[in-house]
């Protein structure tokens, strides 16, 4: 009964740890010697353990970048795999320092959960995966279908809205874990599997015959995915926020993992500010002057991480689309480092 034990963790944490709310997360992390990062239980491209047990993915890279900025060592992380319905409780109870687990930014999650989103790592949307043999070309043809969905997600509510809005009937079968959901879809219990489009592509790879399944063209929702931190620690909030911004800005400035040593010697004023050879922006965050260098050296810039994990350099082959930089036709945009 994992749920019940989580309940006690939360109750005890809330009941006894009177320091929890105001704690300086950065100091706690430093004292502990490692970052505690909440990830998914395995989603290719975002957070997934490889055959050696190393976690990789876009969400994982955020945590690696954080660890690099704090410890100058991207491996000083304890990854905590969480199901969709356990993730917020783990963050609230202090079990993890940051939740980087393909989580959709919504108003209610930003407020009532006692946590904040720090930015958008991936602009996603909800779609449908169906078997090709059903000969369905549009989501509007799904009247009376059985739909498999993972419980505790925004997906579940979007689904209800979409079918109601289009006056269609459907049957929902909700599972606690993503694997069970996909298994039920594969066994034929459902006609449709619905989730964020990026996940549909990732899960399709795991199916026996990926070519027998097709992602329908409709994207029925906005799903901006991003990391979350607890309320009440603005310094930590800033750090997590700016680690992502640093990766996006690095791509915009043309700083890559390969050329970072060269670029660090550059005379360009914006690069000097970022690398800390001019000013002390990193220290203002509570980190070190070379925070930017550490991040890029460890995980590369946003574009590199994207390509390596979900883009052209990965099995998923997802196009940049909305996640392209703002000056290249997308909407990824980070405030300037100055």
């Amino acid at each position: 009964m994992k749920r019940v034990s989580l309940f006690f963790t939360l109750a005890v944490a809330a009941g006894f740890a009177s320091q929890a709310a105001t704690a300086e997360t950065l100091k706690t992390v430093k004292d502990r010697g490692q970052l505690s990062c909440g990830v998914s239980t395995g989603l290719p491209g975002f957070s997934n353990p490889d055959d050696k047990g190393n976690w990789t993915g876009l969400d994982v890279d955020i945590c690696r970048a954080l660890a690099a900025a704090i410890f100058n060592d991207p491996s000083k992380i304890k990854f905590v795999p969480l199901s969709a319905k356990d993730r917020f409780t783990a963050l609230q109870s202090g079990e993890i320092d940051v939740l980087s687990r393909n989580t959709t930014w919504t108003l209610s999650r930003d407020t009532s959960l006692g946590a904040n989103f720090t930015g958008v790592t991936y602009y996603d949307g909800q779609g449908f995966l169906v078997k090709k043999s059903l000969k369905v070309n549009s989501a509007l043809e799904l009247n009376s279908a059985s739909v498999c969905v993972q419980t505790g997600t925004t997906t579940e509510q979007n689904l209800a809205d979409y079918f109601k809005g289009n006056n269609m009937k459907y049957e929902v079968i909700a599972f606690a874990g993503q694997d069970e959901t996909v298994k039920a879809y594969e066994s034929g219990r459902c006609d449709v599997f619905t989730s964020d489009v990026s996940q549909l592509y990732a899960e399709r790879l795991k199916l026996a015959n990926p070519a027998d399944h097709v992602v329908l063209p409709e994207v029925i929702s906005k799903e901006p995915l991003g990391p979350m931190v607890r309320h009440g620690d603005d310094q930590w909030f800033d750090i997590v926020k700016w680690v992502l911004f640093a990766m996006v800005d690095a791509e915009e400035m043309g700083v890559t993992q390969a050329n970072v040593d060269e670029m660090a010697k550059s005379d360009k004023p914006d690069l000097k500010r970022a690398f800390g050879t001019d000013g002390n922006l990193g220290e203002q965050l509570g980190l070190t002057k070379d925070w930017f260098y550490r991040i890029i050296k460890a995980v590369g810039n946003y574009g590199e991480s994207f390509d390596r994990n979900v883009g052209t350099g990965s099995k998923l082959q997802i196009a940049r689309g909305l996640n392209q930089l703002w000056n290249k036709g997308g909407i990824q945009y980070a405030p300037p480092i100055r």
């Binding site: 749920r3 019940v4 989580l6 309940f7 939360l10 109750a11 809330a14 969709a84 319905k85 356990d86 993730r87 917020f88 409780t89 609230q92 209610s108 999650r109 009532s112 959960l113 006692g114 419980t151 505790g152 997600t153 579940e156 509510q157 909700a174 606690a176």
Partner: peptide, 18 residues
């Protein structure tokens, strides 16, 4: 499943729901 699962993660009110 529906209350301590879905409703919990949508509202985040673990203590009350559990």
């Amino acid at each position: 499943s529906v209350f301590a699962g879905t409703a919990l993660s949508q509202t985040g009110q673990a203590i009350e729901i559990l």
